[in-house]
């Protein structure tokens, strides 16, 4: 046990001929089967392609379902005509509705410089109810009313549309551009003072935030 090294000399082993032939045969068969990797890889590629197609289809379906529901539905209600009418008379009724509820209020803002703060408040109203988008759009009509009231332009604009929502139906028949101003004025006049005060208060809060 006084060995100085764990090293064990490896014996020289000579393989049997039949064993060598067996190894060579297996190696040849392995090479032959190795070429059959192509079908396997092709099968995998087909599976991956199918999965990718399924994912793309699902994504497209979702993209068509989700956006198609809300935006397309908004334009139909006809809010678009009313908003576009005030800002740019009869220019584009349909485009304004979709984005008009949220951002385009700025479009109406064009007519009145003081109406610039109004858009944000309108967007808030829009968020409350999509069908009431006509309310915000009607705000475009309100600007027309607000113009007369230079003292508090934006607040008055905001209240009138939301309150006028019932009146919006009358507006649409009224035409896109010409009927708006008068209708807006009549609607604002019909709004009760209490409601208007509350709306102004809310707008006043929103104004500073904006």
């Amino acid at each position: 046990m006084d060995r100085r090294d764990l090293r064990v000399p490896a014996p020289d082993l000579e393989p049997e001929d039949w064993f060598v032939e067996q190894l060579a045969l297996l190696a040849r068969e392995s090479g032959a089967t190795g070429t059959s990797d192509l079908p396997r890889s092709g099968w995998r590629v087909a599976v991956v392609t199918a999965l990718a197609a399924a994912v793309l289809t699902a994504t497209a379906w979702l993209a068509g379902a989700l956006p198609g529901g809300s935006p397309l539905g908004d334009p139909d209600p006809g809010p678009s005509p009313s908003p576009s009418a005030p800002g740019t008379p009869g220019t584009t009724p349909s485009p304004s509705p979709t984005t008009g509820g949220a951002t385009r209020p700025g479009g109406p803002a064009g007519p009145g410089s003081g109406s610039s703060p109004a858009p944000p408040s309108q967007s808030q109203d829009d968020g409350a109810g999509s069908p009431q988008s006509s309310g915000p759009t009607s705000s475009g009509g309100s600007p027309g009313t607000s113009v007369p009231g230079s003292s508090v332009p934006t607040p008055s604009d905001l209240p009138t549309p939301s309150d006028i929502t019932p009146g919006a139906g009358s507006r649409t028949p009224g035409g896109k551009t010409t009927g708006k101003p008068s209708i807006g004025a009549s609607a604002s006049a019909s709004v009760s003072a209490s409601v208007r005060g509350s709306l102004r208060a809310s707008v006043g809060d929103a104004g500073p935030l904006g």
Partner: peptide, 21 residues
């Protein structure tokens, strides 16, 4: 050896079989 050459397998066996055992 990959191509199935018996002599190559014999040489590989001589080189590694002893250590492997």
């Amino acid at each position: 050896a990959r191509t199935g050459d018996a002599e190559a397998w014999r040489a590989l066996y001589r080189a590694h079989a002893g250590r492997l055992v």
